[in-house]
Design a protein around this nucleic acid. Structure first.
Ligand code: MN
Ligand code: MN
Ligand code: MN
Ligand code: MN
Lengths: 217, 217
DNA sequence: ATATTTAATTAGGTAAGCCTAAGAAGATAT
DNA sequence: ATATCTTCTTAGGCTTACCTAATTAAATAT
């Protein structure tokens, strides 16, 4: 049985692979909040356990087995988030860190029953797709809000942020998955976006924040 | 933050105190499935951390702080069992070991929301009382079924067993909390009890099994 | 009182995960 | 070509939680 730490590393490597194609020591260490030395040691161990292989061009990638485990963890994480927000009424801003603990204690049977109870949801509260039992993740066409032009409109698909503060702020503006957003204006010199959420007032969003909001349609 | 291991030891010591008044190294080691050496070391550490004190008459007892932590864990364990059986439909025979993992990942907020969602239940699926937020445990008058005489009747309060096999067997006979049981006959020479559950057939129960069933009324 | 059994502790060791500090390898700049 | 970053690895240490084997302490039996 892999330890909770090993599981967290697999998840971290998987996310890095999704975002950057491969994982390197430095980026993994950052994500796991450990030193590069610690990340290097863990990668060596994961390679010995055939969960990771050393890709030629400077980087590490998960093996089939490692990737399957990672996808299972992502599924359990997002199902847990769904449960925490929908059933218990926990805020989406803290659901992530609570789910990060839950994901390691779900057995296959509990995972299955939980998914059924929730009606086999397809996304987590932040809009990310929930992998199916085989680990398959539904792909959709999405673009960053920061890439939008003035007068463009769309619907929020995903909010790519884990910290509670920003999530709390965004939900207070109604900027949550499935909200309709229209970009009214973009300030010059790479300035903030003026957006309208639903039929409420306009808000100015910094580019960094806007780049964490992924839009569909 | 206490580690999961420390939490499990606190729980083990608490149960021993309830059952035998105090915890000694040997009994604790048995319960935790470690050697006496390991249990001895852990007790030393818990004493250093002021979670346990060395009682004069051969034994260790929890401090107020240690006991409060233990009661919180028991509460989270039993709430988790309730959730697993009532909401997810997990069998009571495996709910215990699943809950043993859940109890360590519940934050105070999640614990509170979970208790509310469940309607603040007063007992776990095995009939044991759920401590309230202060750790207070409701006391009731209960007796072992094995102490019953022929023709005595009562209602099952608690089933004091953690292994899945016996629990599965007992529930197949309808021997679960709140079931009405009548002792029809007791075989001589400390023999088995012939019991009638509800209005179904009679079953012969060994004394060891009968002593794990606690009756009320 | 002495011997035996049981209970508890100590000594010494291992593995997982973390750290700092030092060194090696690669990439970039001058 | 040489110097300077950046990235990665190694060496050496620490803590937690476990182990076996040996020792000490306490209880029980003869
Ligand atoms: Mn996680
Ligand atoms: Mn999420
Ligand atoms: Mn437990
Ligand atoms: Mn129970």
């Amino acid at each position: 049985m892999p330890s909770e730490k090993v599981e967290e590393y697999l998840e971290g490597i998987f996310k890095l692979e999704c975002e950057e194609g491969k994982a390197n020591v430095t980026r993994l260490a950052e994500r796991m909040k450990v030193t590069a030395a610690s990340a290097s040691e863990m990668l060596k161990r994961l390679e010995k356990e055939k969960l990771v292989t050393h890709k030629g061009d400077r980087g590490h990638v998960l093996t089939a087995r490692g990737e399957h485990m990672a996808r299972t963890l992502v599924r359990r994480h997002r199902l847990s988030e769904r449960f925490l927000t929908d059933v218990l009424g926990i805020g989406w801003d803290v659901a992530h860190e609570e789910a990060c603990k839950f994901e390691h204690v779900l057995s296959p049977d509990v995972e299955k029953k939980l998914a059924e109870m929730l009606g086999n949801p397809s996304t987590c509260p932040h809009g990310f797709p929930i992998p199916d039992l085989d680990g398959k993740i539904a792909q959709t066409e999405i673009r960053r809000l920061s890439s939008f032009c003035a007068s463009e409109r769309g619907v929020i698909a995903e909010v790519d942020e884990e910290g509670p503060e920003l999530l709390q702020y965004l939900s207070s503006l109604g900027l949550i998955p499935d909200a309709r957003v229209e970009v009214k204006e973009i300030a010059p010199f790479n300035g903030p976006l003026l957006v309208k959420v639903g039929r409420s007032a306009q808000y100015a969003l910094g580019r960094e924040v806007a780049s964490k909001i992924w839009m569909k349609q």
